[in-house]
Design a protein around this nucleic acid. Structure first.
Lengths: 122, 122
DNA sequence: GTAACATTTGAACAACTGTGCAAATGAGGT
DNA sequence: ACCTCATTTGCACAGTTGTTCAAATGTTAC
């Protein structure tokens, strides 16, 4: 797909930009609501605390206060973040008495995690 | 790796948590500075504007003001975001006269992009 | 030199986000 | 009934973020 015509390649006045094609791309961007969701997924992964929680849970199923203990955060803070992760179905939990044991809910997450590491290493 | 002992499985008092293993995990978390970088990568991808820019650039190399035109944003806003993307080496640019043509700088990004979509679709 | 244009940069502002505190909820034991 | 403990939730506040405006930078043409 071509967004600009070559004839417009030497200037940036809006006048020269191919209106039809720009319109097409805009429509594409709008129609694909997925972008918002995708950004939301990455945004949730884009916090040090949450990415650590995800890593910890990829190692072992844990309850809230243990996660808090490992991360050195308040139980409340962890619970807040777990809710965020739950909303995007990245983690799940099972109740056992008073405790809530959290674990990863999606296989894709580990893949995203590792692929992200790939980029970091470069 | 085990973070908690089974003996501690029915309570959450810090006293009962295996201090050695918690310490080990904490040390692991600290030593792996990568987590911060990884979170930063995801954070940068976690913005609607930036994810759209990345998508647009995966289609075609474009100059700043055309990206702004397609997204309906000010040139300044786009330039700010492009700098963020440049800092993480997600996009690169070549100068040609007054114009700066941006394109993707990393093959991994497309993969991350698509893998993120996988999760959304579920 | 000046003028025009694309881009970058800094400042300011509103909007959002992560955390801790305190109160509320829920679930087991006595 | 009560008490205890794990978790959740609402609130407040500091810190961060995305945008726009205006000024600065850099490049081309005259």
């Amino acid at each position: 797909m071509v967004i600009r015509d070559k004839i417009a390649a030497d200037t940036c006045d809006v006048y020269f930009v191919d209106e039809n094609k720009v319109g097409a791309v805009q429509k594409l961007l709008e129609s694909i609501v997925v972008f918002s969701e995708l950004a939301e997924l990455f945004k949730v992964l884009g916090d040090p605390t949450r990415i650590k929680i995800i890593y910890i849970l990829s190692v072992e199923e844990l309850c809230v206060c243990d996660i808090a203990g490992v991360l050195g955060l308040s139980v409340s803070a962890v619970s807040h973040q777990l809710r965020t992760l739950r909303n995007l179905k990245l983690v799940k939990f099972r109740r056992e008495g008073k405790m809530a044991y959290y674990s990863l809910d999606d296989a894709h997450i580990s893949q995203l995690f590792n692929q992200g590491l790939e980029h970091i290493k470069e």
